[in-house]
Design a binder for these strands. Structure first.
Lengths: 110, 110
DNA sequence: GCTATTACCTAGACAGACAATGCATGGAGC
DNA sequence: GCTCCATGCATTGTCTGTCTAGGTAATAGC
């Protein structure tokens, strides 16, 4: 994956996944992988720093659990996180529309 | 414009503009601005390094002209540049589809 | 004992976009 | 004559986000 395009969308996708219920690092990777049609394989070196960043910004909360001898750190969206997600979705749509405009591609909601 | 999203799409948009005929820095900025609906205002600090980068990669060729006392450096797409643009367009579509998939947004060609 | 999978984490490298700045010309307004 | 703005090229330094590459540790299967 030589994809520079990801910059700025990773956090949005992580927030999106967490908007549908608490999850943990490893599971978030799997979810994004499947929901992107196998396209986006988050790397730990991006994922964990991003999770910590978002938690510092109070967009996520967290708690530890134990499952079959392995510890898991669950993250969940805060109210501020939900607002941030909405903003990022709006921004993404405007961005994608702008790029498609330059490319001469006309897309519309199905 | 606090837009990290641009990473990786700048070059594509510049190539796209140049695919419709030779142009120069200042004009490229104007073209992208108008075709993105006023959304993307390329900065010199991004534009010129990118132009030089693309020229080094032989995706662009260039020549100087003089216009009303001001010198202009025109850039034009090479055959390799056209191929690269096609590849980037394909990559962009796959990327946007992936992101929209994660966001649960269904888009289709109008 | 070895390996794969699950699960967490970090340090450092790297790239790309930006702000700031510089230089130069021509035309409009005062 | 002077200043300001738009045009037009370019570079430097900074910031930030992603990735590479490493580390720890438990469980299960061979």
């Amino acid at each position: 994956m030589d994809n520079k395009l990801l910059t700025g969308t990773l956090e949005m996708m992580m927030l999106e996944v967490l908007s549908q219920g608490p999850s943990y690092g490893y599971e978030i990777v799997q979810t994004v992988l499947s929901r992107s049609g196998g396209h986006f394989e988050l790397k730990e070196g991006s994922l964990y720093p991003a999770l910590h960043r978002l938690e510092r910004q109070k967009l996520l909360g967290s708690y530890w659990t134990e499952h079959e001898g392995r510890r898991r750190k669950y993250y969940k969206l805060t109210a501020a996180g939900r607002k941030a997600l909405d903003a990022k979705r709006t921004e993404w749509k405007a961005f994608a529309t702008g790029v498609n405009g330059v490319l001469g591609i006309e897309y519309g909601l199905v």
